[in-house]
């Protein structure tokens, strides 16, 4: 299975690296330390957003509420610090707890009512966004804690400090799925729900934990992003939907559940951030960036399939990404 993850994102990483070197030689802007820092800063945010989606994809579910939770957490942290004058530590902890609770609400409804995450999180995500806009009247908080700004915009040459929480999170999530019983339970339920049920794996608890974790990671992504933007706006997260799916899918996460390649996610975030940056350096319209993200999802899935059919197909992966046949929306 690990070889499979490798083949899925290795060609993309190689292509990006080659393109990056060529661009670095061809244009003066691309190879500068500042530009690489920008790419890595975006990478860290994308990786966090992607991880938030990956943990629910792992259990064969999805969350359209990643952005909604992020918006709500952003204004909670911004409001508690800027208006209620809470100490920044307390505001962040409260924000993360809020994200966790939002995720728990999603998980509870989905697990208890036996519903698809799609429609539930479409509804709750809209509600979370609605609360964020209603509470703030769409006015951002501009009194941003300096700690978050120095985290979001701090750098050592090309190394963005945001990479520290992003990498730590990727490692923790990867390790959790590998070694923690609940992580393995999530993968088991995602891989084959019926088999997991018969094996006595607590599938409701796994669903609950996956969504709660997704909410927590979305909250961490939101806190990371406050410093980048230097503003706590309820609009945070409104554009995260495509990215949240593009990162894990390009990173090799199967949509049918059962695996959680955290490292692949991180590489995919790097690739997407680099492409984003190239298009901006080349003065391409931002709408083209949006189009590119959509097309890249296909490119990734198709290249992954090709790699799979070229390499030896690993057992138990006979139905990769193709359960369109018998499943509901």
């Amino acid at each position: 299975m690990r070889r499979l993850f490798g083949t899925q994102w290795a060609p993309l990483l190689a292509a990006t690296a080659v393109a990056g070197i060529v661009l670095g030689l061809a244009t003066k802007q691309f190879g500068t330390a500042f530009n690489i820092y920008t790419i890595l800063q975006t990478t860290a945010i994308y990786a966090a957003i992607g991880l938030s989606q990956m943990v629910v994809l792992a259990i064969a579910d999805m969350s359209l509420a990643v952005g909604g939770i992020a918006g709500l957490v952003t204004i909670a942290v911004g409001g508690l610090y800027g208006v209620q004058h809470w100490p920044i530590g307390a505001a962040i902890v409260a924000g993360l707890a809020l994200g966790l609770v939002c995720g728990l609400v999603n998980g509870l409804i989905i697990a208890e009512m036996d519903l698809s995450g799609f429609i539930v999180t479409l509804a709750t995500g809209t509600a979370f966004t609605g609360i964020a806009y209603g509470v703030t009247s769409a006015i951002p908080y501009s009194n941003i804690p300096p700690v978050l700004v120095s985290l979001g915009q701090g750098r050592a040459s090309f190394f963005s400090y945001l990479l520290v929480p992003a990498i730590a999170m990727s490692v923790a999530v990867g390790a959790g799925f590998r070694w923690l019983p609940i992580g393995r339970a999530i993968l088991a339920v995602g891989g084959n729900r019926e088999a997991a049920l018969l094996a006595g794996i607590p599938h409701k608890r796994a669903m609950l934990v996956a969504h709660a974790l997704s909410g927590l990671i979305a909250a961490i992504a939101a806190v990371m992003y406050i410093g980048v933007l230097e503003s706590a706006t309820p609009a945070t997260g409104s554009e995260w939907l495509i990215i949240s799916f593009a990162v894990p899918i390009i990173g090799g996460t199967a949509l049918v559940g059962g695996d959680a390649p955290a490292a692949g996610c991180f590489v995919a975030a790097l690739v997407l951030a680099a492409i984003n940056d190239v298009l901006i350096v080349l003065n391409v319209n931002t709408e083209a960036v949006q189009m590119a993200e959509g097309l890249l999802i296909f490119a990734a899935v198709i290249s992954g399939k090709l790699a799979q059919s070229v390499g030896r197909a690993s057992p138990g992966r006979g139905r990769p990404l193709s359960s369109a046949g018998s499943s509901g929306p």
């Binding site: 495509i242 319209n285 083209a288 949006q290 189009m291 959509g294 899935v301 499943s327």
Partner: peptide
């Protein structure tokens, strides 16, 4: 056609096309 030829779920196909079409129209 994309869904039928790639075997991907309609969710992911239409999600990707949402960004492709939306971006193309503005462009």
């Amino acid at each position: 056609f994309t869904e039928l030829t790639t075997g991907l779920s309609s969710f992911i196909v239409t999600l990707a096309f949402l960004s492709v079409y939306g971006g193309a129209a503005v462009l």
